[in-house]
Every structure is written in structure tokens, then in C-alpha cells.
Design a protein around this nucleic acid. Sequence first.
DNA 1: AAATTAAATGCAACTAAGTCGCATTTAATA
DNA 2: TATTAAATGCGACTTAGTTGCATTTAATTT
Lengths: 118, 118
Amino acid sequence: MIKEKGLSYTQAREELIDLLLHASTPLSYDNIKNSLSMDKATFYRNTALFEAAEIISSFESNDKKRYYFIEQNLHPHFICTNCNSIECLKEDIIYALNGYKIESITIKGLCPRCQKNE
Amino acid sequence: MIKEKGLSYTQAREELIDLLLHASTPLSYDNIKNSLSMDKATFYRNTALFEAAEIISSFESNDKKRYYFIEQNLHPHFICTNCNSIECLKEDIIYALNGYKIESITIKGLCPRCQKNE
DNA sequence: AAATTAAATGCAACTAAGTCGCATTTAATA
DNA sequence: TATTAAATGCGACTTAGTTGCATTTAATTT
């Protein structure tokens, strides 16, 4: 996967891909810094590289942090503006936009739990 | 509009609402700081307040800045991951998500111009 | 209309996610 | 194994956004 894109294989990169592959939701540096053996700078340099190589995608959440994920099949991510939780939406809302290339879809609003407690 | 939500009417708030109402795309503080007579702190305090009152919405773009807008009719915003441009999409891709309240939709990818130059 | 008071503002100091320069280490190739 | 270009770690730095506090302003009371 890494080699396929012409990038050299390192332990840090393998570790990072592995974490993202097995995650059930997008992850921020903060989420996984304790599980990472690499430095913060290395994390960000590699995520930038992987994004450019289109191995991973990311978005900025409400909490000022960037979340990274490997897009298995294009699906929207929902961010709750109240509790900041992030979840993957199952519903396959795939639309083609003429001339655009879609990399990720983010929907913001209130999750069911927060909407109830309004 | 401001009064309707039980907020007190000030010159700064009127100015802010006015700018966002007449904007054709979402705006960041950086975009309009030269047109604003209020302080940065006041800008951010008021945007936070307006968001809580559901008068405005916002999203974080690729450039680490937050963009604010008044949602006239729910439509997606497209952010180009290459040139960071932001545009409003006309196509009404409105879907109901059971139990969720949708406040904004952001689609990231390559805009037509950047996709051509790949 | 002046007095009162709670809320809004400006200023400057601060916070923290993410970036950068540089010395050191590691992966890939000869 | 030797070579070299790329990857890493560390610490300093950047900057969008936040916070504390003194001052001003809007809304209400008398």
C-alpha cells in the first residue's frame, strides 16, 4: 500500500497505516498519541504525505483538531455540534458532482442523543 | 433577527449579521477583519453566540480557519483540497437523516479547475 | 430623563494544534 | 559494506482562536 505509491516503507508509516486501517472512526493526533511511537512532527509529515498520495483523507472537526481516516467506501461522517462526537454514517449517499472529485463528505448537526436533550 | 433570539442588539452584532447576510460564500475572520470595526475577541464571541442561537453555521476549512455563514436554504459547501477555494453548491442534495438534525454539509475534494491540472 | 446594573466590548496576554529548521538516524541502492 | 538521499526526533516557532479584566454600552427602573 505504501510502496504502491512510490513511498519508502518505514516503521512509523506502517504503524500509522495500521492504526487507521483498524479504526472504526476517524482519528486525531490527540486520540492516538499515546499509542504512537513516532514524534508529533513525523505524524503530521506522514499524514500530509499520505493525503497527497490519496491513501488517507481528513477533515477538521469542531474541536479544532484534524481527523484522519482511510476511506474504504465513500460514506459521510457526522459531527455533532453539541457533544463533538464523530460517527460514520452507513447510508450510502453517493452523488456524483459533475467536474468535481469527491474525497469526503462531512455533515454537521445534532446527533440523536443531543437532539433529545435539547 | 437578533432580538428574536433574546439577544441584545448592539452595533457590532448588526454589523456582523449584515456582512454574513450579504456574503455569497462563507467568511472567515481573516476574510473580513478589515471590514470589521469590532475587535477579534468580539467577533469570535458573537459568532459563538450566534451559532448557539442557530442564527449562523460554520465549518473549518483546510486552511485551519473557521468559516461562518447564514444558511438560507440548506445546501452543501465544497472545499477544494488543492486550492482551498470554497463554493456553494446549487444542487439541492437534501436528505433526511433519521434522528439527526442537519445544520451543514461540507464536501471536500478537487474542484473542476484543479482536477484538470492534475 | 437620570440612575442603575448586567451584559458587551477592547486590549493584551495566553493557549494549543500544527509547522519548521537542523542534527541524527535509517532505508534503499550500488 | 559503503554511500546517499530521505525519514525522524527534538525543540523552537507560528497563528487562529480564547480568556481575564478594566471600561463602555444597552436595557430597565425609578
